[in-house]
Design a protein around this nucleic acid. Sequence first.
DNA 1: GACATATAATTAGTCGCCATACTATATGCC
DNA 2: GGCATATAGTATGGCGACTAATTATATGTC
Lengths: 177, 177
Amino acid sequence: MEILEQKHIALLTEADRRGDGATANLRLCFEVIALAAAIDRDCAARLAPHNLSEGKFVLLFLLHQMADGLSPHELADRAGVTRATVTGLLDGLERDVFVTRQQSKDDRRKVLVRLSPKGQDAARELFDTHTRWIASLFAGFDESDRQALSALLQRAWRNTDGRRKAMQPKAESEITQ
Amino acid sequence: MEILEQKHIALLTEADRRGDGATANLRLCFEVIALAAAIDRDCAARLAPHNLSEGKFVLLFLLHQMADGLSPHELADRAGVTRATVTGLLDGLERDVFVTRQQSKDDRRKVLVRLSPKGQDAARELFDTHTRWIASLFAGFDESDRQALSALLQRAWRNTDGRRKAMQPKAESEITQ
DNA sequence: GACATATAATTAGTCGCCATACTATATGCC
DNA sequence: GGCATATAGTATGGCGACTAATTATATGTC
């Protein structure tokens, strides 16, 4: 049984053939990506029966903490996606009656999103199920395992472009986004 | 600087508040996912200037190894996506003249996909650039680091649903997909 | 008070992925 | 030989993400 996917194996085989020496690092990278992809697939498969996706689940969860409701803008910020994406997710959630949209009184540009009773139930139940499942993936890891894995992941992460870019934003004269 | 994303932090905060004890495992899972997502983003950002996506890059690379061309079906199998997805990717690659489609003579249902000269160049150059970049993410890892990380990832992977399902397909009387 | 600017949400268009359904062609069996 | 079935490729439509543009509303300044 192999954690890697078809495409990774093809890439590795070719890299090996060329003998460029970095094959071991390539494999490692693909293992990280393949594990994450496997977890994402599991997550999607577990949420699908409820008519939910990962993105929708995050919104549900965010709203659950905020009894007063949140605006799409706030949801976007907290979920880390664009407002346009939130609009799309809310369309689905509203259609399936997990959520209601209601115009704000003090600022008529704003919309207030609240959980419906169905949404409340789903959020409460799924949050538990979900966190228990995720935790179970790492069942059997003790504190030293966790620290070892975390440290190794951090070391790789320090080499990503995205993190580099996030490091010196002060030097820029203009923030593009 | 934090490897985790907004949504992960929100989830963790709530789990912590509830004190369900599994927070450390949750965080670990999110770290894996966040690193993989960061790598995927970098990958997309590096390929975008060439008008390529990760999916298209894989096809380019697969074709590069096969001078005689491949059918969409074979491409789908080796890339690990559906034939329909391959059709879409090929549409884009053909539009940008990375690739040509040509009907097979011996089996008129079949199509033979080949790299154009532009595709050849792109594949050769990008394969090198790309593998060097990926390897550089794990620069500084020695063999024991690699084995440690790999072993930890494998342990988590053994707990995924997808892997479980792949383990006993013999017992089923019918293969649903 | 009016106009420039900022902000909120949505719409429209693109992309990559999927599942499903269709068309054309091969193949196997009676 | 002819019909059922399998296979190859594509079309269609959905989802979730993005950017850019649009519309409505606030706000700040002269």
